[in-house]
Amino acid sequence: MGIHSITVTVNGAKERLDVPSNMTLLQMLRDKLGLTGTKNGCSAGECGACTVLVDGEPVNSCLMLAVEADGRQVTTVEGLAHDDHLSALQEAIIEHNAVQCGFCTPGMLISAHALLERAPRPTEPQIREALVGNLCRCTGYLRIIEAVQTAAKKGGA
């Protein structure tokens, strides 16, 4: 099986990696780079736990190959906080108790972050629609939606 030498920028740091053809971006992040914030829920595009940003847009990293990320910018949940400061969205998630087991949270954060980047003052239907691909099995969605609204009020992602 082919091995590919790729260069990918992950959370601002340039990485040179050798990845086999069948390695997903999700496996690369978790197993090669130790970025275990991004979760594997279904490996089939349905749960959104593996959502990361590629060139600023959210994608399911379980359905993308690592080799396809060559030359791209990837942001994971670990890249949302800066200088030890959580983002407004992360703060809002805590404030609203919008986390229980936390398995869905990294993907939720990434999808919501991307929403606030493209629509800084989203309506509730817009929030619901943006999070359709992120399943939560415990918190219930209301607190998560409220957290996104609070983050939007405080000035965005």
Binding site: H4, P20, S21, N22, C42, S43, A44, C47, L65, V67
Partner: peptide, 15 residues
């Protein structure tokens, strides 16, 4: 929901 198995091996070619 159970996660699907990993991708079987193949060669990737970018055309």
């Amino acid at each position: 929901m159970l996660a699907r198995p990993a991708l079987p091996s193949f060669d990737y070619v970018r055309a």
